[in-house]
């Protein structure tokens, strides 16, 4: 690899790298183009532009209810993961739990086991316990797959914390909980926002677990797109995808503006 004398990337590296950046954006651009294209398959140049697919999708109760379901699920599981994950990470961080390392490994395990395996395991489990197709079951499944992200970011944020700061609060008269709420929590909030955002997106993105657990009446948006693609390409899917692309972009930029999000990935 060529590099300047001081280790800066040379022209060849820069060009290769920028080509890779373009490669990363290509399918995104294609989806957006398809959403505005009049034909059901894409051509360059597009044969005509239309907003019809957006109108179709936004008027389609199937899509709207799937979107609503996805958002409820993502919000619920993120909130639960944050509460459960932060409390557990805090106890682990303060080394007030025997076997902290083993416990941390268990908390991270859902990241290691393939999602499809978690999916089929829960499918059988919920079939046996009668939770199959229930919202609670689905919510808990999403907590399981999102909580490692929260635990990880909480542990990382806590590791960067000066322990003395919390001790100072204690000596100044704060109870343990007050010290956490008034000092520790505000200081780890940026990291938690990043972890929470990852959890949210993981939930919103999930197919391999969700697809085994949903009932006919409560599908999520990615599962709906996944199944409709099996039927063939539909520009409506492109329109829905474009909405998701724009929403993701906005959230990412906001998170970057407010918290310097790129530091947490």
């Amino acid at each position: 690899m060529s590099a300047d004398r001081d280790g800066r990337p040379g022209h060849a590296v820069t060009i290769a790298a920028l080509a890779v950046v373009v490669f990363l954006q290509v399918p995104v651009l294609v989806v957006v183009l398809a959403a505005f294209s009049t034909t059901s398959y894409l051509t360059i140049p597009p044969q005509g532009l239309t907003l019809a697919w957006f109108g179709k999708v936004l008027g389609d109760p199937t899509y709207l209810s799937a979107l609503r379901m996805s958002l409820i699920l993502a919000c619920g599981s993120t909130a639960l993961s944050l509460i459960l994950g932060v409390t557990a990470a805090y106890a682990l961080f303060r080394r007030s739990v025997p076997g902290a390392e083993a416990i941390t490994a268990v908390l991270m395990a859902p990241l290691v086991v393939p999602a499809v395996v978690v999916g089929v395991a829960l499918l059988q489990y919920f079939s046996l316990t009668g939770l199959r197709g229930s919202f609670v079951g689905l919510l808990m499944a999403h907590v399981v797959i999102t909580v490692p992200y929260v635990v990880r970011s909480a542990l990382a944020s806590l590791a960067g914390l000066d322990l003395a700061v919390e001790e100072a609060a204690r000596v100044l008269g704060a109870t343990g909980f007050e010290a956490f709420r008034l000092v520790t929590l505000p200081l780890i909030t940026p990291g938690l926002v990043a972890g929470g955002l990852f959890a949210f997106i993981t939930s919103l993105d999930n197919v391999p677990v969700t697809i085994f657990l949903i009932s006919a009446s409560q599908t999520t948006l990615p599962v709906l797109i996944f199944s409709s693609v099996e039927m063939g390409i539909d520009p409506g899917v492109a329109a829905v995808s474009t909405i998701l692309i724009v929403a993701t972009g906005i959230v990412l930029l906001l998170a970057e503006r407010r918290f310097g999000f790129h530091r947490f990935v």
Binding site: V26, P27, V28, V30, V31, A34, Y41, L42, L204, D205, V207, L221, P222, I225, F226, V229, I233, V237, A238, S241, L244, I245, T248
Partner: peptide, 12 residues
């Protein structure tokens, strides 16, 4: 970005 969306982009 949604995995399904990205895969859909590649199908297109």
């Amino acid at each position: 970005l949604n995995l399904v969306v990205r895969s859909f982009g590649w199908i297109a």
